[in-house]
Design a protein around this nucleic acid. Sequence first.
DNA 1: AAAAAGAACGACCGATCGTTCGTATTTCGT
DNA 2: ACGAAATACGAACGATCGGTCGTTCTTTTT
Lengths: 207, 207
Amino acid sequence: MPDGRRLRGQRSREAILDQAVSLASVDGLGGLSLGRLAEAAGVSKSGFFAHWRDKEQLQLDCVDRARRLWQDRVIAPTATAPKGLRRLFALHEARLAFYTDGVLPGGCFFFVAQVEFDDRPGPVRDAVAAAMADWLGYLERRVQDAVDLGELTADPAQLAYEIDALGEAAVTHARLRDADAAYRHARRAVLDRLRALATDPSILPED
Amino acid sequence: MPDGRRLRGQRSREAILDQAVSLASVDGLGGLSLGRLAEAAGVSKSGFFAHWRDKEQLQLDCVDRARRLWQDRVIAPTATAPKGLRRLFALHEARLAFYTDGVLPGGCFFFVAQVEFDDRPGPVRDAVAAAMADWLGYLERRVQDAVDLGELTADPAQLAYEIDALGEAAVTHARLRDADAAYRHARRAVLDRLRALATDPSILPED
DNA sequence: AAAAAGAACGACCGATCGTTCGTATTTCGT
DNA sequence: ACGAAATACGAACGATCGGTCGTTCTTTTT
């Protein structure tokens, strides 16, 4: 049980990590520079190495931190929605809220990370791939829930791909084109798709 | 009309540019290093500056080059398909073929570029945004064609967003998860969506 | 009280980054 | 034939990169 000196270290470690995830959501895990990170976190560059052996260790911890952030801000809030179709759509809306609320300045950590590392073998790529596999798997299981409840007729893997793709694209569309239109299209696309596959579309909102 | 010396210069300029687009499709326009680019293209690093004033000029030319590549390999081949719904789906299939054929080692230049520059103001961002606006606009007009022919009932901007999102996501899914499944899901998603909106679904393949 | 461990620092390292400069060679316009 | 222009080069520049080292101060452990 840490306190005193160790507590202070742990606090600054978390402050650095939060800054790192934020900066990485904009410039990527590679574009993240230790000098700029240290400056933004208010520590010296060498002080950084008291907490991480090298940049790669920080990157791996960033993936873990971003995972928990996603868990807390996207997955957890949907627990109040009724299991099945409505919770599935709540998941999509929570994701869009994550973007519109500006939780991360770059929009989505994993979106940047997977584009950056999908062609770069190594431990970081594996961690990103595992995180994406977990997320997609979670989506699939929520689709399966709705199927099991008789609310939906769908292939889970197929529908999970669609929901993820339609939500993810909102990040860049919002930044490079029209933000309102992007989120509106992303929401409408999944809503229409779910209503089309639903046994009883009336349990979902009309718009 | 260039020849002789000028011709050689133009050739090496194009060779460098092709290499740049290829490398940038993997590491991004920023991750692209002039040293590695020069080495890959077989010229000296300083020789590069005989063709471009600075890195930004190269990046802008890369955007232009990638646009023409997309035009030649995705848009042009769909000219043989019947106008309307079938040409719209042919466009999606041509895009997936662009990925599966491995035209660019990183999959899609613009995918990487837009993630990289959506938060970085400047001329390159503007060029990327313009290219994406052109592509999305083209998609919308092809949707509108199908609507005008009475083959489709859809909001062009909405459907264009969906088709683009469902195609784009295949790039990272193919690299980080299962390639076959990614392309299968991407194809199936758009096919199902178009068949659902079609006046006469039988003019599209069943699978 | 002594010793071990943790946090943080400034100074510095070699490598690489984008870029500039001077120069040599070759072809083009006149 | 001749000067201008284009192509390409090697060497070097300042800046920044990730990372190391030695040191100081404080806390924890023994």
